[in-house]
Design a protein around this nucleic acid. Structure first.
Length: 218
DNA sequence: CCCTGATTCGC
DNA sequence: GCGAATCAGG
């Protein structure tokens, strides 16, 4: 692989959005995070810091090098770190969406085929949107009020990774509606061996007894 | 241990 | 210019 204009452009935009070198490397494919970092430095857009503390600036540095959004033809891909550009950036979203509105959070064939779990059965469901299938699909798996609040917090902290950014140790809990572009995976660190983070493991793998108790009290 | 970016240096 | 190896942190 080589640094074609397109690849460099994607690198720049992603770096500008605060994506990590490894995430960018995965998105680009064919390169390691080291390659990405090396390129970032050669491009001179490593430190996006505006305040050089020890006033070592003098007056010589107008150097537009760092963030030079200058020669951008026109649709400048927002060099500024827009926290949630959603679909603005030229992200190569292959989104091989399986059409199924809410199938189990199938592990992306890529790297982590979510190991078969022993007993409990995953009961994943989008927590917030609760989209299409109005009619209660799989009778909702309720969780304690406490746990529910927790999930909301977790979704706020979610890394919002796309399919390609998942690894064996990132939570693969789906968040959002797969049918829209506001869909991503939790991405928080997953528990050892499990496909989900601490919070999502709790709702995904519930002891049968607990599920029964809940359905009964319903 | 997992991850991050920064640097070095042979190619 | 490139990026693996290495370093230095979190």
């Amino acid at each position: 692989m080589s640094w074609t204009d397109e690849r460099v452009e994607l690198l720049k935009s992603m770096w500008g959005e605060g994506k990590s070198a490894s995430q960018i490397a995965k998105a680009l494919g064919g390169v390691t995070r080291n390659a990405v970092i090396g390129k970032v430095h050669r491009l001179g857009l490593s430190n996006r810091t505006a305040a050089p503390k020890t006033g070592e600036e003098k007056e010589a540095a107008p150097a537009p090098a760092a963030a030079a959004p200058a020669p951008q033809p026109r649709p400048a891909p927002a060099p500024e770190p827009a926290p949630r550009p959603a679909a603005a950036a030229p992200e190569p979203e292959p989104a091989p969406r399986p059409a199924a509105p809410q199938p189990a959070p199938a592990a992306p064939r890529a790297a982590a085929p979510a190991p078969e779990e022993p007993v409990e059965r995953p009961a994943p469901r989008a927590v917030s949107p609760m989209p299409p299938n109005g009619p209660q699909p799989p009778q909702v798996t309720e969780v304690s009020e406490e746990a529910r609040r927790n999930l909301e917090e977790v979704e706020k902290k979610a890394k919002r990774l796309n399919l390609l950014q998942l690894t064996e140790r990132t939570c693969k809990w789906p968040i959002g509606d797969p049918a829209t572009d506001d869909f991503f995976f939790c991405g928080l660190p997953s528990l050892g061996g499990k496909p989900y983070c601490e919070a999502h493991v709790q709702v995904a793998f519930q002891p049968m007894s607990a599920r029964r108790d809940r359905s009964r009290s319903r």
